[in-house]
């Protein structure tokens, strides 16, 4: 392998607008951002609820969610594969080896990340924030949104982490998507499989894209995150 030559080829692929390469990037972004967009509102509300309400079984739910953080993505893929395969209970949906199956898998993976981080962020909020909002006439929903805005640094961190986890995960995407060219082939499955075939240029190019995506999205979202730190 000539690392220098492969890297040069990688840049050529990227900047020549290689259709296949950019198609793979598009699949990755579409799947991960869709999964994140569907799950984020639900997870943030659930995280806020678990952080602020006391009820029987709450502690158990929190422990299970924290446990799911370290759940191997390949196991999530395996469970969903069994559910979605033709003989499985959801086989009639014909979702296996489609982008929808990949989205479903990534939703399962990102959900505990967002819930756990939101719980942590909201529990760290100053309890006076909610009372002050209520005291100034805010409705309960408005006061909750105000608290979430106050802890936006933590909530945004949850979203960064969640995105980072799913954009780069390979296990579930491979099992549920099947790495079908032009349909379910995404960045991590391509890197894993193309590299094993000796195709380094595409892998390096996609590696650069992953890094650029991670940095770019973080810079963009950081604008909404605020400064954080001790007040």
């Amino acid at each position: 392998m000539d690392l220098f030559q492969s890297t040069r080829d990688a840049f050529h692929l990227l900047f020549s607008g290689d259709r296949e390469l950019w198609g793979i990037i598009f699949v990755s972004l579409r799947v991960s951002l869709t999964a994140l967009a569907i799950v984020a509102p639900i997870a943030i509300v659930a995280g806020y609820f678990l952080a602020t309400k006391r009820f029987l079984g709450r502690r158990t739910i929190v422990i299970v969610i924290q446990g799911l953080l370290s759940f191997p993505t390949v196991v999530v893929g395996l469970v969903l594969y069994m559910l979605l395969s033709r003989q499985g209970p959801l086989g009639s949906l014909h979702m296996l080896f489609t982008p929808s199956a990949m989205i479903l898998g990534q939703m399962m993976i990102v959900l505990p990340v967002l819930v756990a981080f939101t719980i942590s962020a909201v529990q760290g909020a100053d309890p006076r924030a909610h009372d002050t909002a209520i005291g100034l006439g805010a409705s309960r929903v408005r006061a909750s949104l105000t608290v979430l805005w106050e802890v936006r640094f933590g909530v945004m961190a949850a979203i960064f982490n969640g995105f980072g986890r799913i954009i780069s995960e390979v296990g579930a995407a491979l099992m549920l998507g099947g790495n079908i060219a032009g349909l379910t082939r995404n960045i991590p499955t391509t890197i894993a499989l193309e590299t094993s075939k000796g195709e380094f240029a595409q892998g390096i190019a996609l590696g650069f894209v992953l890094i650029a995506l991670a940095l770019g999205l973080n810079f963009t979202l950081a604008r909404f995150q605020g400064e954080g730190g001790l007040k």
């Binding site: 100053d126 006076r128 924030a129 009372d131 002050t132 909002a133 005291g135 100034l136 006439g137 805010a138 409705s139 408005r142 105000t146 805005w149 106050e150 605020g226 007040k231």
Partner: peptide, 23 residues
């Protein structure tokens, strides 16, 4: 009700004062 140690939202003072009006 104004607390003994009032909590000010993590934004500008003008936005803090504006909060109740926006609500």
């Amino acid at each position: 009700y104004v607390e003994q140690h009032p909590y000010l939202f993590n934004t500008t003072i003008a936005h803090n004062i504006e909060y109740g009006l926006k609500v």
